[in-house]
Amino acid sequence: MKRSFLWCLAALTVSPLIPRAQTVQQLVEKVKAKIDQVKDYTATGRMKTNVSFLKVPVANVVIYFRKPDQLKIKNEKGISFVPRGAVSINLNNVLSNGAYTVLDAGKDKVNGIAVQVVKLLPVDDNAEVVLSTLYIDEARLVILKSRTTTRDNGSYELEMSYGNYVNYGLPDKILFSFNTKEYKLPKGITFDFDDGAPPPKETAGGKGKKGRAEISIRSYTINKGLSGDVFK
């Protein structure tokens, strides 16, 4: 009797999770299907980099993407310091191979919009990405936020807002947060002029800093074909 009761209790506890797990799997598949419509794109926009030790101007950039995972951010006229993990703005990287386990992580809100939180665990133990957390807008089937933890390059966070290209799952604005290493050069090399400006703020422990890059997309050219040369 006691045993039967425990079985029933266990069944009642687990049963809501079974259809729910299927639902988030389906949700991810739907989001993936939306993103999969885009075989390649060229986007123009402005990139604003905010890192404590970098004094750089706002850059006009061109973003090139080609399936499955080629992505390049270029400043055609000047110099841009593109964060290494910016390649993760291409969510195909996370979703394309399908080799992940989907976990339901509940509901949440991003900028006031209700989202489904989904965790993706790669099947490959040696994959560079260790864990991805996606915040999916179920109504529009787009990812509003993602947090990616990598094996060697720290964690990245993306926040995206959508406009004209929401049907392709392409954002109009991307806010990319990343970790940077401490910047310090010997003064014997730089021969700095001491102009009295305060030094950049140190982070706690001084081991690493958080950087942000904001890309505002002006326009996309989608599925018009792209030469492989632009990715070299």
Binding site: L54, D192, P199
Partner: peptide, 17 residues
């Protein structure tokens, strides 16, 4: 010509060309 990147001990300054 191009942008100038000036390396200070604790900062990196970029000046457009």
């Amino acid at each position: 010509t191009g942008d100038v990147v000036v390396a200070k001990a604790m900062e990196l300054h970029q000046i457009e060309q």
